[in-house]
Amino acid sequence: MKNILFLLLIFCSINASSQSRYITKNGHIQFFSEAPLENIDANNHQVAGILDLTKNEVAISLLIKSFKFDKSLMEEHFNENYLESDKFPKASFSGSFQSKEVINPNKNGSYPVTVDGKLTLHGVTKAIQTTGILTVAKNQVIAKTKFQISIKDYNIKIPTLVIKNIAEIVDVTVELPFTLETK
């Protein structure tokens, strides 16, 4: 009887852990630069990510060339001159998060979280901390956060000629609609 209970417990824990991994391939990340001469808005709707609610971990990655700009010339400069996407085709983030409450994937609700992790962009990895919201709703978890990055920190060089066109601090908005990973 004890053995059966033990096996049942193991089965339940395996099942619980398999129920806590969420994935996305269509996350959205926006870069917004507000500068005296112009505002630049770039959007990437092909962000991939994994969210593990058992380990409270998150990892996301994206291709620089998936960013879309309003002006194709801006997109060209972004890829060729600033982000050097041929040399550094990807950006990634991996980190862990803390929540005051236990995040229950079976209970709908919003959970404020603090995320600590490492952001790799343009071949430079930096530690960042941000706050965000995890919204749980029916096999889906939507992660939202906003933070700022200094382009200098990531060794992104802007020529003096266009210094008034690009902000030194860029706003980053993230929205990741994670769905439960099916086995």
């Binding site: 391939k25 092909q46 991939a48 994206l62 291709l63 060339k65 998936s66 990807k90």
Partner: peptide, 11 residues
């Protein structure tokens, strides 16, 4: 081809 994450991306 613009790269590989978990999938290969073409644009």
């Amino acid at each position: 081809c613009i790269g590989f994450l978990n999938d290969v991306y073409l644009k």
